[in-house]
Design a protein around this nucleic acid. Structure first.
Lengths: 125, 125
DNA sequence: CCGGATACTTTCCATTGGGAAGTAGAAACC
DNA sequence: GGTTTCTACTTCCCAATGGAAAGTATCCGG
């Protein structure tokens, strides 16, 4: 691995591409909302998760969860019973990503007033 | 405004809706990439910004920039000359959002290896 | 008078995403 | 014994979104 004198990774085109690809995956509203829901509620089943996230179609919820599972952010546990029982929870990696997003949530909670007044000001021009 | 004893805002359905709406706006790949490009390069013109972001169509770049302007994240300055000259820079609000996203960038730089190996492991099942 | 420069805007088409209905299979109800 | 129920999807159809490329406006330099 290419390292700078201070031990951090260097910014090579290859690394940039990898980082960029993850950013595009992670900067997705459903991913972010699922992350939040799981962080707040721990282990949650499919239907409940849909309710917690709110406004998500089952199709997109399934897709988002599969992606997050494949990226190592969540664990999907299937109990082979009928009716089906599947639940989801964050992995350690998922928890760390959730923590990284914490600053963004705080920013929104702190600044939504500012954004809305900016919008009003912009609207009447 | 509704405040908790500790002075933080309470989580009411109205506030949740506002926060949610901003999250959906901000959790967008182009918004995040534009934010990053402007944070790193300061004042940038349209075409250059497109190059810095990379892979963005002019249509989406325009749309993203207008949204960010309306949300008070960036300032758009038009110099009435020909050929046209327009440049963009972060507002103070934009800088604070960029700072909030800092943790996410760091997370990605630190963990993209973990994500990619999770993907490989997931792929062969 | 043609081409170049810049910041869009428009048009056309492929992809994405929402809504609703369908699927599986045992168990509980009538 | 037939029917409804329960959950986690999957599929189908259609509307909305986004990309690629071409068009627009305007002046200046050759």
């Amino acid at each position: 691995m290419v390292l700078s004198p201070d031990g951090t990774r260097q910014s090579t085109p290859e690394v940039d591409a990898l980082v960029r690809e993850i950013i595009e995956r992670v900067a997705d509203k459903w991913t972010m909302l699922v992350l939040e829901a799981l962080e707040e509620h721990g282990t949650v089943r499919f239907t409940r998760l849909g309710e917690l996230v709110g406004g998500v179609s089952q199709k997109m919820l399934t897709k988002t969860l599969r992606q997050m599972e494949s990226d190592g952010l969540i664990v999907r546990t299937v109990y082979p019973v009928i009716p089906p029982h599947v639940d989801y929870q964050l992995t350690e990696l998922g928890h760390t990503l959730s923590a990284a997003f914490c600053g963004v949530w705080q920013w929104v909670e702190k600044n939504y007033d500012a954004v809305h007044s900016a919008r009003r000001a912009f609207a009447q021009k």
